[in-house]
Each structure stands twice: as structure tokens, then as C-alpha cells.
Design a protein around this nucleic acid. Structure first.
Lengths: 345, 345
DNA sequence: CTCCTCTACGAAAGCGCTTACGTAAGCGTT
DNA sequence: AACGCTTACGTAAGCGCTTTCGTAGAGGAG
């Protein structure tokens, strides 16, 4: 902490405005019990002195913090940085500061980070990013979060269930179904799903949706190979390489997030496969660049920034008697990366 | 703050290990003056109780914080989120937490945010993002930062000069020169620069570099129009629209960041102009998607994450007697969005 | 054996705020 | 006029730590 030469304290403001420190505190924090005239006098004095409350002292005394903690998998990933953007903007409006940590999708690091946020007595914790299908992996996190919540802490998650707290949940399954229907509607039948690790609930849910559509179209799940790779651009490239070898006659690729889809486009281009001429590609998320790719990426739009903001809103609200769930609609956005199956043109 | 039912306090640890609270404090924070045997006993007790120090109390008492503040223009922007990623990762290694704020490139909001970080007594402040050419716009920021630094606060900036503090500075000018030379080397002479507002020093520096190259090639600055727009994808699109009307014979576009370049590619494609066939396009920054665009974007690589990490390192170091500057090399990365001028093939 | 120097520890004073509690004044009742 | 109620403010007790200062005991020097 900077011992700013003479950083004014509350007592200085109190003296300057001729009131007690208690009254000054009340006036500045808007606690009732101060006449308007006195309150204004205090605020004036504070302004003139350039007084700003010491956050730590305030937190220590009041037992509450204006800081909210945000845990993401990787802040450099557009999906998360857009969520963070929504959180930061809304938090700023509420005069709250945001402490961000990223975990590199490591479940242990995740628990670690949450623990440290709890220790730092943040006012609320926001957790963004998929959970894990495997309950035993998810358990420590769930425990930590529950303990915090039961002790009165506020938690909200985005894109994650099974944690027993308020959540903002994108329609992953309906979204998956929607893209798949779109692809099927274009006549594609030799389809491949390019997927992140099936350990992630997000992946599982989206895949579920895709399978719903396939089943509805009378396709067997076995007819549609699922290529699994890292949930990143590189993962997308890798899956396409495998696809070109193992499933060369594929006409459509359903990638389960935009990152992978971008990798798919990249690798298909390098391999001289035209999109959507020979192979159609779809993504999921609608990250900002999706529309500027060439071809523009057909994908499912998730309002990431809004999701972040809504999670914060939930966390800031009085806790309900039970965990609230807000569904966020996923909207199919058709662009140029998908087209009718080649033979059918 | 969560009044965790029985969140153990230092005094609990002290009692449990049969020492005074002072000794317990010293043992846990590693302050000398405690025998090894006692220290170990205390640590053991702390572990058993699940004790974690209250950050606010510690900060209040000690006058220093483990939190570092990071100010960026817009966290949703890949340039900044990649910098943030570097900062977060390194901070985690040092056991420091990071508070991020974004300002929407609004100089006033920027000062505001810095002020609030100062008020919150963060341990160090990192500021990422271009400054403003206009000294009068930059002055309040400079003042705030200087005041903080003089009071002993640690500040480091990335991609920004004129603030009189430690800085990590990408080679914007040499980088600008390098791309421009590359474009010129391909035979282009009817060139347009697509630029963010010239108010930004980053833009000005890169443009300077471009002009260096043009001059060296015997071109007059007047021969190369500079189209100014928002420093975003949409800005890039907008500039291309103007270019197609006002400078229809252009064969190469030098965009001063990747975001704009991506917008340029997008608009050129919509307008049916082939890249690099009819028009070459280059960017600047090498954000992660640049390589996955179609065509892959020729650009200038800046190691954003590393820049963030280096700024943090500077801020964590003992302050030097004078402001340190670290130059970060900018490396030309040639991909497919640039090619020889059409007629010359 | 006394004096002095270290070392290891405890007592207690804050850090800058919030807030429970006390009190004096103002006002309406009866 | 006495009583209670409300409002507006002051007093002071912490919040959970760090750190200064003081002291007891061990050990060495004389």
C-alpha cells in the first residue's frame, strides 16, 4: 500500500466538516440518520480533500467487500473474455471491482482459485465455464462452493450445472439440435462431429442436442463419428486431419465450439478442401470474429457478455431459497460456411 | 464478506499452538524471530484449522496488498485479453491476485479507474494500451500516475510512453516499417493505410514506421492516403468501403492493427474483391486468430502475453532510480493475405 | 558472580473504517 | 406539563491483523 504522503482519512473529512467521524461515515456511505444539509457538507469536504475510503479498512470493519471474484478457464479465450467484458461493465456500474483468475481448465487449479477468493472474502464469486461430467472430478469444487454458499456467500455460475447455486445456462442442447437440423436440412448425411473432450458438460450437452436431431432424422448415432480433441483451434485442426484420413467422404462438420470450427476451417483450407463447396462447417458460441471469417461461420449465437452480466446480477441479488436457473436462448446464425451437400446442387 | 460460521482467526491458531498472536503472525508470514520448532508448530495448527489470513485485515495492518490492478481498454478485445492472460498467469505464480478494469478507450474513465485502484491501495498498477498523442488529454493520467509513483506506488505500462514510469514498449515503428517494406517489396505502389484514430500514440508510431519505408522507397507521403476509422473490425470495414469509392485502384491495404485488418478482409470479401489477388492486406499484432483466417493474415507479431508478464515483472521489481524501458521486438509474419501486385505477376 | 548481549517471545498499540448504543433535542399526546 | 417517540448525532468498541517495544532467559566475558 502506498503511504501516499497525506492520503486523507475519514477523520480528516470529519474535522473539515465539523462533525464526528461516525456522522462522516454515515454521510459518505449513504446510511440513513444524517440530515441532508450535514450530509452535503460532508460530501463537499470529502470532495475538496480528495478523500477516498480505504477499501481494506471498510471491508474489515463492515465485513463485506465490493470486490467480486471471477473464475474463468482462460482469459485469452474470446469466449471467456467476452463474458468477462460483460461482467466488468456491469460491475463498474455497480461500483464494484472485479478480481479475475484463470485456471487453464485444470479442475484442481479451479478449486484452488475459488478457495483463495473465499479467503480473500470477496463479496461474490462468479464461475464461468463448463463443469465436468465426472462427478468425482466435480465433487471438490461442489463442496467448496456449497460451503461458501451455506456460510452466506453469493455464487453464480455461467454455463455450468450441478453446483447447486444460481446459474445462467445457455441452451446448449437446443442449440446443438438447431445446428444439426440446419445441416441435415441442407441434405448432409455424411457428417462428423468435432468435439472437445466429452468430460466437459458443455460438450456433452451440445452433443446431446446434435444427437437429438440426428435421431429425429432417422440417423443412427453410430453413423456420425465424433472426433474428440482439445477444445481449441489446434484441436479443430487436428480433428480435421484425422477426418480427412478416416472419413474422407464427409460433407459436413459440426464443431462444438467456434474455436474448433475456426481450426477446422483453417485446416480444410490448408488441405485444399473448399468450404462450403465440398464440406460445410458449423461452430458454436458466435465469438466476435465468427462473422468476419472467410467464409463467415455458421454458428449458434450465445450472448456471452450478457450471460456474464446476468450471472453478476444473480449474485448481487438477495439469495433465493433455492438455486435459480436462468436459461439463455441459443440462436442459430446461418452464414456462408454451410451450404447444400455437393451432390444435391 | 461471508461470516463463515467459524472462520478461524489468527488468535485461534495462536491458542491452538500455545503461543501469542504475535508469534503466530510471525511464524505464518515468515518474519524472523521465531524458532524453527515453534514456527513449525504454528504452521501445523494453521493447517489443521484450515486457517487463511484475512486479506483485508492484513492489508490494513501492514499497509500493503498482494493485489495488483490491471487497466485495459477493453477486455473483450483479443489484444488486451492476451496481455491479461500473460499477467494473470505470472501473477498466479507470485501468489498475487489481479483486479482488472476496462475503460472503453475513454481517457476520462481511464483516469477514474487508476484513481480507484490507487484508493484501493493495490500493490501495483499495470496499464495496457495506447496513450494519446495530445498531451493535454494525457496530462491528467500522467499526473495521477506520477503522484502514485512518487508516493512509492509501483506502476508499469505496456505500449505506452510519456507516462514517466517503467514501460514495455513494442517496436511499433520498426514493425510498421517492416510491413510497409514487405508490401513495397511485392511491387505495390497504390497503397492505402487503414488506421485507427491518429490520436493514439500506437497508431501514430506504426504510421511513422510505414512512412519511413515509403520515404525510403522514394514515395511521397501524399501518395499514400491514410483512412482513419475506429480501431476495430467495424472500423476496418468502414475504411474499405470508403477506399472502394475514393481509391478504387488500390492494390494494397496496410491496416494498423489486426482487428481492422480482419474488418478489411471481411468487407473486401463482401464486396467481391479477392485477397490477395486484387488487393493485399496486412495487419499488426498477430492476435491468435490471425493465422486461422482465410487467407491467413500477414501481420506483425507482438508477444502480447509476454508483454503483460514483463510489465508485471517490472512492477514487482524494486523501482529503479529512473523509469526503465523494455523494447519488445516486432516480427513480420508473412502469410497469405499479401501477394505480388496484380499487374506484375 | 555480575554485567552485558542476544534471541525468542508476549503485550499492546494501532491500521481506517463501521456500527451498536447512548443521548439530547424536537415534537405530538393526553 | 409530563411522557413517550422519533430524529440526528456523538462515543467507543471492535473488525483481524502487523509491528514496535519491552522483557525474560540463555550464554559469554570479565
Amino acid at each position: 500500500m502506498v503511504r501516499t504522503n497525506r492520503s486523507p482519512r475519514l477523520i480528516d473529512v470529519a474535522h473539515a466538516s465539523g462533525v464526528s467521524i461516525a456522522t462522516a461515515s454515515r454521510a459518505l456511505s449513504g446510511t440513513p440518520g444524517v440530515s441532508d444539509s450535514v450530509a452535503e457538507k460532508v460530501r463537499q469536504a470529502a470532495r475538496e480533500l480528495g478523500y477516498v475510503a480505504n477499501l481494506h479498512a471498510r471491508s474489515l470493519a463492515s465485513g463485506s467487500t465490493a470486490t467480486i471474484g471471477l473464475v474463468v478457464h482462460e482469459i485469452g479465450d474470446p469466449y471467456f473474455s467476452e463474458i468477462a467484458s460483460g461482467v466488468l461493465s456491469l460491475a463498474a456500474e455497480h461500483g464494484r471491482t472485479v478480481q479475475i483468475c484463470h485456471t487453464g481448465r485444470d479442475p484442481e487449479a479451479e478449486v484452488e482459485q475459488v478457495r483463495s477468493l473465499v479467503a480473500n472474502r470477496v463479496g461474490a464469486i462468479l464461475i464461468a465455464g463448463s463443469g465436468f461430467v465426472d462427478a468425482s472430478v466435480e465433487a471438490p469444487m461442489r463442496l467448496e462452493v456449497q460451503r461458501y454458499a451455506e456460510a452466506g456467500g453469493r455464487v453464480a455460475v455461467v454455463g455450468r450445472h450441478h453446483l447447486g447455486v444460481d446459474s445462467v445456462l445457455p441452451d446448449n442442447r437446443p442449440g446443438g439440435r438447431a445446428v444439426a437440423e440446419h445441416i441435415l436440412g441442407l441434405g448432409h448425411r455424411r457428417i462428423v462431429v468435432v468435439s472437445g473432450t466429452l468430460e466437459l458438460t458443455t460438450v456433452a450437452d451440445r452433443l446431446e442436442g446434435v444427437r437429438d436431431a440426428l435421431a429425429a432424422a432417422g440417423l443412427d448415432a453410430g453413423d456420425v463419428p465424433v472426433l474428440e480433441g482439445p477444445f481449441t483451434r489446434e484441436g479443430g485442426r487436428e480433428c480435421i486431419r484425422r477426418m480427412l484420413v478416416d472419413h474422407p467422404r464427409t460433407t459436413a462438420v459440426i464443431a462444438l465450439n467456434d474455436d474448433m470450427a475456426i481450426g477446422c476451417l483453417s485446416q480444410l483450407r490448408s488441405s485444399g478442401v473448399s468450404v462450403p463447396g465440398e464440406v460445410s462447417v458449423s461452430g458454436f458460441d458466435d465469438v466476435a470474429v465468427a462473422q468476419d471469417l472467410s467464409p463467415g461461420l455458421t454458428t449458434v449465437r450465445l450472448p456471452m457478455a450478457e450471460m456474464g452480466a446476468r450471472a453478476l446480477t444473480l449474485a448481487l441479488k438477495e439469495p433465493g431459497s433455492r438455486a435459480r436457473r436462468q436459461r439463455v436462448p441459443a440462436e442459430l446464425v446461418v452464414r456462408d460456411s454451410t451450404g447444400p451437400v455437393a451432390g444435391s446442387v
